[in-house]
Structures are given as C-alpha cells and as structure tokens.
Amino acid sequence: MTKPTAYNREASETQPPLNHPGYGSTAERSPGKPLVLLPHSLSEITGPLYGQDSIGPNDHDLTRQHDGEPIGQRIIVAGKVTDENGRPVPDALIEIWQCNAAGRYIHEIDQHDAPLDPNFTGAGRCVTDGEGNYRFITIEPGAYPWGNHHNAWRPKHIHFSLFGNAFVTRLITQMYFPGDPLLELDPIYLSVPDAKAREGLVCAFDLENTVPGHALAYRFDIVLRGRDQTPMVG
C-alpha cells in the first residue's frame, strides 16, 4: 500500500463549470452525471516530467522562428509558476500557441478572412527555471470572430499549457490582455465564476521587463494546485 500526500481540491469558484450555457459548444460536450470524486493515489500524484533537453534554442522566441520578423507589436510575456502556497514550480514545461497580429491562426481549419504572416507560426515552448520563472518573446495577438453568437469576437489571448508535477496539476488556460473591451462580452472568459479568479487570467503591463527601443512586456503569473504537506521523497 502507498498512501501519498494528496493535493488540495480545486476551489470550485476558481474553475469554469463544464456546462456553461453562454458557450454553446459545452451543451453536448459536458457530462450530465456528477463527476466521481477520486482519492489521490499514486496515479494522481505522479505525472509526466520534462527536462531542458526537449527545448530548442528559439522555442521561447516566437519572433525568431522564420527568416524574417513577424508583423505586430513585439512583446515579452514573462512570469512565475508557483503552487497555491507560493512555492515555485521549477522545471515545468510551458507550451503556448496563439494567432498572429491580424487575428489569424496558422491552423488549416481557421477560415477567418485575415492574412497569414509568413514569418509567424505562433507556437512556443519553454521550461521554468529553478525559481519557477519563464519568459517568452512574441507579438501581440489580434482578436478574431467566432461562431458562438451573432457578432462574437474572442478577446486577444494566448493559450498556455502546463503540467506541474502531477496528473492532477495539469492545466490548459488562456492569458488575456488588460483593458480589452471584448473581455466582458466573452463567454469563455466569463465562464470562470469568481471575479478575482477571472482577473487572474489577465496579464499586467510590466514596465520593468520592457526592452527600451524594442519590446513591451506583460507579466502573467500562474498558480498550480499545491498541497499543505510536503511529500516524503526518499
């Protein structure tokens, strides 16, 4: 028998419900029966771990993945990954993807009538350092229309994917930009019940991290699930 140190349960107001009427696609893609509460066994407190070796030199810099520079406002997106207790999460793989400055994804199913940028793919990867810090260089994404309701537009956002140290810490989210008037009209952003948690998805302008004459900067800190007791690792 192995009784591992369990992770804290998610505070429900911080997470969107699976069925959110404002977001039409959730209706037939969310279970009608309640989730079954699973105690945390070895299967839940373990999870995939990555090392620096899987990251290429330009993976964190989305402005240098082609021969030329992409069109758009150059930005640095940086922050710290911690758990709920403020402990840094080092060596955490972060994967991001986004549309270009015109609001168009390189993805083949994106039919939005906005130009592709031959110098921008929009995908990046990095691993947090020993203090949980990460840093990407990219261009500010555009807003784009979608079919959820009449005249629906997604606010500017960057998708983030993180693993943390366990199956239960897996997180895929979206980072938004401050002052975007589309936020209060977006059912995906508004699916998060708690206002403070929602605001946590909005990055902050970060003057200190700007590169004078070159790039603006935003800060986006990410909080993964934690646990109150330190696990025994012998």
């Binding site: 709920e84 207790n85 989210t173 708690d194």
Partner: peptide, 14 residues
C-alpha cells in the same frame, strides 16, 4: 493561499 489559475478551453486550434 494564492488563487488557483482558472482553466480555459483548449479551443479548436491546438
């Protein structure tokens, strides 16, 4: 405690 970062959909373009 810090507020847990909220999940959002992976969307269609991942």
């Amino acid at each position: 405690k810090k507020i847990l970062t909220s999940s959002q959909t992976v969307g269609p373009f991942f």
